[in-house]
Design a protein around this nucleic acid. Structure first.
Lengths: 127, 127
DNA sequence: GTAACCAGTTTCCAAAAGGTAAGTGCTTTA
DNA sequence: TAAAGCACTTACCTTTTGGAAACTGGTTAC
């Protein structure tokens, strides 16, 4: 799911009636999904929020992620202002990834997904 | 190494094994994303929940979706027990899509995404 | 002096997602 | 009788995603 701009072009909103109500929910949800959907973005945000701030540390904390994918997703998250990359000119150079304050606004999304995922797993695995 | 406050409480002490701690959040979130991520699944659920129950009606209510994609996503949602497909043997056959009670459990996820999407759009446009 | 760690990048490739356009078989409406 | 609606399906194609593996250019530990 790739869009050109920062917000989703949902086309012309259907005028009036029952569609409008629907559209008012669909559009914001699509805006949000555009930023955070995909296999890796939220796991990365969670890992960084739990104190995994170095590249290899994040990589190790997320099962099955590869360095190539991590590198690309970190760049995406940086352009969406959810993660900040800081380079310290130590010897050798040390790179630290931290969440921006803006990323904290995703907390309710993460909590909702975590809780739904938990009960879903219980439901699927026999209960 | 400061935290932004995005700390999801998953019952483990922050001083414990940070990888285990982290996985308790990542795994459920990934379980949830497996079911609902992608460009169309939540928009379809929203449309159906708003009373768009016929194929063409759903199609019209979601900007830019095509019948091919809608058909495929509806099948996926059916196998995940989120949508029920009912065929009435009228002349001609009438097909109705409805949400299962289980789909209602996604409400908090949808609300969280909708609200985040709303403020995100405001942030992007209104700065 | 070589093995390992760091922060990535590169290449090659397969699979999944998604768009375009047309068609199917049926029925209803003008 | 033609057009349009319903519920889809099919074929073809491009884009996106992501996995595997090697590699780079530095540093540090044994």
């Amino acid at each position: 799911m790739k869009s050109t701009g920062l917000l989703v072009d949902c086309g012309a909103p259907p005028t009036g009636d029952s569609h409008t109500d629907c559209h008012k929910v669909i559009m914001p949800v699509r805006d949000a999904l555009d930023v955070i959907s995909g296999k890796w973005k939220l796991p990365i945000i969670i890992a960084v929020s739990r104190g995994h701030n170095r590249f290899r540390d994040i990589e190790r904390s997320i099962p099955k992620i590869t360095s190539k994918v991590l590198s690309k997703e970190l760049k995406d998250l940086e352009t969406h202002k959810l993660i900040r990359r800081t380079v310290y000119n130590t010897q050798p150079v040390q790179v630290e990834y931290t969440l921006t304050p803006y990323a904290a606004t995703l907390e309710s999304v993460i909590v909702a997904l975590q809780q739904w995922g938990l009960q879903h797993r219980k439901k699927i695995l026999g209960k």
